[in-house]
């Protein structure tokens, strides 16, 4: 029963996501769900390096920026079709991340985190100062949506773009699922549990760690491209360390290392500030408390808790286990 329930729940959620824009008349909520789905992709990427491999990377937003700028510049400066730019951006981000990951992975644990954080700052500084390419803080305007599909689907319509993002989010979620079940996924989890042991067993640990980092960058690049062509404007502000911390928070809150935890976390990260509408100082305090309390009291995130609550409720209602 339990095994059958999970795919059913997934299908129901998917159906809900597909139906949502048809029922929601206030388009503001469509935008929020759309952004949350972009953040879902970000969080999946963060989960691969943080949740599965056990290395906290604080540069996910910087990598998102690489993807966003790559896609934007290809389409605006080189006149590439938007589709091609968006498709190639994740690969550029992944390639870039090899150069970030290689030196960063020479240190372990906390120091990996610090080095990646410094890389995020470097990306930010370069985006700010390399004005001949990026226009710096002033940002790039009028980033086009993708060309109409078969002359039918017009992506200037927010709902059409919503379905594009939904498709990518579903594909990326499926990819994560495959990765988790693969032997690579098992090796990554072995590294998280005991890196020395994995290394002693003859696993080329650094290759797997680099793979995890590059994979997470690929996700960030895809999210960045989707973001840039949706909002239509980018500047470095969106790709700073604060947003990287949001990605970490999404994974922690939702459930480290789980498949759907980051989805939950991503929605929380997008919807919480919109609903709370609190001052920046309180946002910092609330997010910080969430991080500390979640790590101490529910180190496995909200999803396992919800799962337990669901089972308890199911028992109460008399469902067979």
């Amino acid at each position: 029963m339990k095994r059958a329930l999970v795919p059913l729940a997934v299908l129901a959620l998917l159906a809900l996501a597909i139906a949502a824009p048809q029922y929601i008349t206030v388009r503001y909520y469509v935008q929020l769900i759309l952004l949350a789905m972009i953040w879902t992709i970000m969080a999946h990427g963060q989960n691969i390096i943080q949740g599965m491999t056990g290395y906290v990377s604080i540069t996910q937003a910087g990598l998102m920026g690489v993807g966003a700028y790559a896609s934007t510049l290809l389409s605006i400066r080189l006149g590439w079709p938007v589709w091609a730019s968006m498709a190639i951006a994740p690969f550029i981000t992944a390639l870039f991340s090899v150069f970030v990951g290689y030196p960063s992975l020479r240190v372990k644990g906390h120091y990996f985190a610090i080095v990646t954080l410094a890389f995020n700052m470097v990306i930010f500084i370069v985006l700010m100062n390399f004005t001949s390419l990026t226009r710096g803080e002033a940002g790039i305007f009028n980033i086009q949506r993708p060309e109409p599909l078969f002359g039918l689907v017009d992506f200037d319509d927010r709902v059409a773009y919503y379905y594009l993002v939904l498709t990518v989010a579903v594909v990326m979620t499926a990819l994560t699922w495959l990765l988790m079940r693969s032997s690579i996924g098992r090796t990554l989890r072995a590294i998280r549990q005991n890196e020395n042991l994995a290394s002693a067993c003859g696993v080329a640990v650094w290759k797997y760690k680099l793979f995890a980092f590059v994979a997470s960058a690929f996700y960030a690049g895809a999210a960045g491209a989707l973001y840039a062509h949706y909002i239509g404007f980018i500047n470095p502000e969106t790709f700073g360390v604060a947003q990287s911390l949001d990605a970490i928070l999404a994974v922690i809150l939702g459930g480290t290392g789980t498949l759907f935890g980051p989805v939950l976390g991503a929605f929380a990260v997008v919807f919480l500030p919109e609903y709370l509408r609190i001052a920046e100082s309180f946002r910092l305090i609330v997010y910080g408390l969430l991080l500390v309390v979640a790590t101490i009291l529910m180190p496995r995130g909200a999803l396992p808790l919800l799962g337990r609550a669901w089972h308890a409720a199911a028992r109460r209602l008399g469902f067979p286990k």
Partner: peptide, 27 residues
């Protein structure tokens, strides 16, 4: 988006700082 879609506002004022303003100007 919240002002336009949810609060049905048609007149937007303020806008002190370039980053957020540019993003709104683009749509």
């Amino acid at each position: 988006r919240r002002l336009l879609d949810r609060d049905n506002v048609k007149f937007l004022l303020g806008f002190c700082c370039s980053g957020a303003t540019s993003a709104v100007a683009s749509f």
